[in-house]
Design a protein around this nucleic acid. Structure first.
Ligand code: NAD
Ligand code: NAD
Lengths: 207, 207
DNA sequence: GTGGTATTGTTAATTAATTAACATTGGTGT
DNA sequence: ACACCAATGTTAATTAATTAACAATACCAC
């Protein structure tokens, strides 16, 4: 199914919000309620759901459980997809921590590092392999997604290796942008940008 | 100066890229070169720079040092702005680590936590204060920006406190969206969204 | 010097994303 | 039963963001 990236992002957010609803025993939710929780408009929610072809039980709002499943059929892969974190430092551990105990189609199956203190240990719930074994492990475990959290200087090489070893998607948290072949999906996020953006608008608001 | 958020983000990225150029003794750069490093188009670069009123020395490209300064006058505050991290766990430490040793208008001056193991220690280069002292410290140190990295359940309360204690901008890394008064600038980032987005496009590319 | 060229700044056009508008629907209260 | 209402799905309009187009400019080679 062809969807704008922005819509995919929101679908992911909808699902997480909906899971929260289940927790609070809320089994139906209106578009404007879901929208308010995410600081967006109800129209946007309805439009996104239209795109994935979901229809509600009229007048009762969306069936939370059903919608969670529907979103799953759209954004999740059919069978599970294996993920690795490269560089299990502070950021890497934070990301790993998120996966711990979660059941989803995304499985964090390995991390890689060069630090002898870390390799061959289980860190934040995932085994850390030596960087030297990346080729073997990535191929053996059929890793499709790499999350890169090594120091910036190593990022370029790591990304090239990951691609060479079969990775099809990269999430780069490093401060330097990467180049990958067109068949590899690359998403980059640099927190510094966010911090500076906040600072800018705080400054502007104060003037 | 009124600028679109997207442009502000890119300006921050331009500056970081330009600093990298200085490192490699590159004192002039063409729009298309800068663009290529960030996976965007040259037109976009030129357009952004037009918005901030920067002009190059024709035919030689942009003067790197000069442009860095120009961007600074636009996006930085005149005097420095104080920042705190709330919740100095894995993610909090990762963010703190970034500030360490950096000289900029943004000063990380405090972190807060509830964990007795952490409070009153210096962690990742910043002193950790007990959560109970937040009011006093935030007011004393004139903290304007809070980066929230506490466990999700606490995020709402923490944000309310931060606002009450004078914070004007919040960067929320928690999985749950926050609500803040209109005069507080809120930026939210949820890595799970990015991960799921990558997974989606990897799946689509494989079909 | 002059012609050719690469690069810029800027306006106009295009494309993407969001929002508004509204007919439709099924439940609710009387 | 029937009128009303609240909420949806969808098309159309609006707004935001990006890209294309191109005249202007300064350098370089000759
Ligand atoms: N780790 C990820 O990849 C990831 C992804 C998305 C969101 N997040 C979110 O980021 C946040 C932090 O993640 P983490 O991995 O660093 O968790 P963590 O448990 O390592 O750190 C949380 C820290 O907050 C402190 N804390 C708890 N209550 C507090 C309070 N009331 N005031 C001040 N400090 C308090 C804890 O003592 C701890 O040090 C969580 O909300 C998590 O959901 C993390
Ligand atoms: N901390 C932040 O807020 C922040 C912000 C923006 C970007 N980043 C980027 O995130 C990355 C990680 O940050 P961090 O704070 O977790 O750093 P960190 O130093 O804590 O972790 C880096 C880890 O990578 C490992 N490593 C080094 N070389 C490696 C290699 N060749 N192969 C595998 N592993 C290797 C190190 O042993 C270490 O465990 C850095 O690139 C940093 O610039 C961080």
């Amino acid at each position: 199914m062809k969807l704008p990236g922005k819509t995919v992002e929101r679908l992911s957010e909808y699902r997480r919000t909906l899971m929260g609803c289940l927790g609070e025993k809320k089994n139906f939710i209106f578009s404007h309620d879901l929208a308010a929780r995410l600081h967006i408009t109800a129209v946007q929610v309805r439009r996104d759901l239209m795109l994935i072809g979901y229809s509600s039980v009229q007048r009762k709002g969306y069936d939370v459980k059903e919608l969670i499943e529907k979103i799953g059929t759209v954004i999740d892969s059919d069978d599970s997809m294996n993920v690795a974190i490269i560089g299990i430092g502070n950021l890497g551990r934070a990301v790993a921590g998120y996966f711990k105990g979660k059941r989803s189609k995304l499985n964090l199956v390995a991390s890689f590092d060069t630090d002898p203190q870390k390799i061959n240990k289980v860190i934040s719930g995932v085994k850390c392999y030596p960087h030297n074994d990346m080729e073997k492990i990535m191929k053996d475990l059929n890793i499709r997604i790499a999350i890169i959290t090594v120091p910036p200087d190593y990022a370029k090489d790591i990304a090239e290796e990951a691609v060479r070893f079969g990775v099809k998607g990269i999430l780069n948290f490093t401060t330097i942008p990467l180049n990958v072949p067109s068949w590899v999906f690359l998403e980059e996020y640099d927190m510094i940008t966010s911090i500076e953006k906040v600072a800018f608008f705080v400054k502007e608001n104060m003037i």
